[in-house]
Design a protein around this nucleic acid. Structure first.
Lengths: 203, 203
DNA sequence: GACGAAACTGGAACGTGTTCCTAATCTAGT
DNA sequence: ACTAGATTAGGAACACGTTCCAGTTTCGTC
């Protein structure tokens, strides 16, 4: 899956020079700042470029589209969340409780910045095949977060566990989309997730 | 929920004159024709207007955005599917079997026109709050399809049944998005749905 | 330190969704 | 049939994502 990657496509893991890493960071910072302030529509490529102090062409060299940009931002945010979560063990007696705790905490975090969440979620859902790589990474991160919640310490994770985690991830995403688009309230969103988890993890 | 609706917003249920109903139909026909031929990107508002033999301004009078247009098209298609399904009783011994049958049949139908499905699904997922009404209708239709599959004949439907149906609908949508964006193969999509249904409906 | 390649800047230009305006046409009420 | 009001046609204009280009700067190599 690791394709040859000579000089272009700095988007994923290629580090580049310090200046390049710094540019990339500035771009993602600008993206998130604009997104938190005005959501998906406020993340305008010209505005991102200006705020990141980078030419428009350079922005496109780093991120080939607005969607790539936002999904990459989502990835970075998610990584932050995941490492923060990885440290402290999750409280809760049953797998269901732990998963619900983790998901609700994450959801609450996202709901505290509705605009940002709207921007990132919409981008994630709108992504087409050209963003498959980045999407896949985010999906893996989410699944891993969930299996971690299911089994706190290096417990074996079966195929079925992964399947369940994936289903839960799907429901979580759908619920988030429902919330972002104003179809569900925050309470309904939490309930929707809880229902799904309890149905899927009744052991 | 039925707000006053004097003259505008013909999009949902307002019938209007025969000529207007005909225009609306021509627009949706053109939309679906373009979508099945070239997917989301091929549904260009100028192209739809021309193909439907309608001015651009008129198109926007009937459907206030491309997303509204595509979601309305999805709604019409879904209604067609649902009434077609409603007739013949679903075969299958268990609830899980019946639900899987219905979903797989529907999925197969959609996969047979990949471009159309891509267009409609992406629109559905990209929709923002302003499309909430149309989205909600489609969601209700889907839930009703699923509860119908669970209980063939006028059997009572509990709250939990509806919740389960909703979860299944979420998973189905996520799976569809995965397929549409080239992340999952058709086989994986089917499997993903089957896994979720069997987990949720093990009685 | 000089050279060539790659990256960056600044900005023009293009495509498509959306808005807006004017003139022509249709519809309802008399 | 006539008129007022609503609807539609036709098309210009604007916004933002994206592409492209010419000139400048940075970077690796000798």
């Amino acid at each position: 899956m690791t394709t040859a990657n000579p000089t272009n496509s700095l988007a994923v893991e290629d580090l580049g020079s310090a200046a390049q890493r710094d540019r990339r960071k500035r771009i993602l910072d600008a993206t998130i700042a604009l997104a938190s302030q005005g959501g998906f529509d406020a993340v305008q490529m010209r505005a991102v470029a200006e705020k990141a102090d980078v030419a428009l062409g350079t922005l496109y060299r780093y991120f080939p589209s607005k969607i790539h940009l936002l999904v990459s931002a989502l990835h970075r945010e998610f990584e932050r969340t995941e490492t923060a979560l990885r440290d402290k063990p999750v409280e809760g007696d049953t797998t269901a409780d732990r998963v619900i705790t983790v998901l609700k905490r994450t959801t609450r975090g996202m709901q505290s910045d509705a605009q940002l969440t709207e921007a990132l979620t919409r981008a994630f859902m709108f992504a087409d095949a050209s963003v498959a790589a980045e999407i896949h990474q985010v999906g893996m991160l989410l699944t891993s977060m969930l299996t971690h919640a299911m089994y706190p310490e290096g417990h074996e994770v079966t195929d079925e566990d992964v399947q369940i985690a994936r289903v839960i991830g799907d429901v979580w995403l759908s619920a988030l989309v429902g919330w972002v688009t104003g179809r569900n309230s925050a309470a309904e969103t939490g309930q929707q997730i809880e229902v799904a988890v309890r149905l899927l993890l009744r052991d």
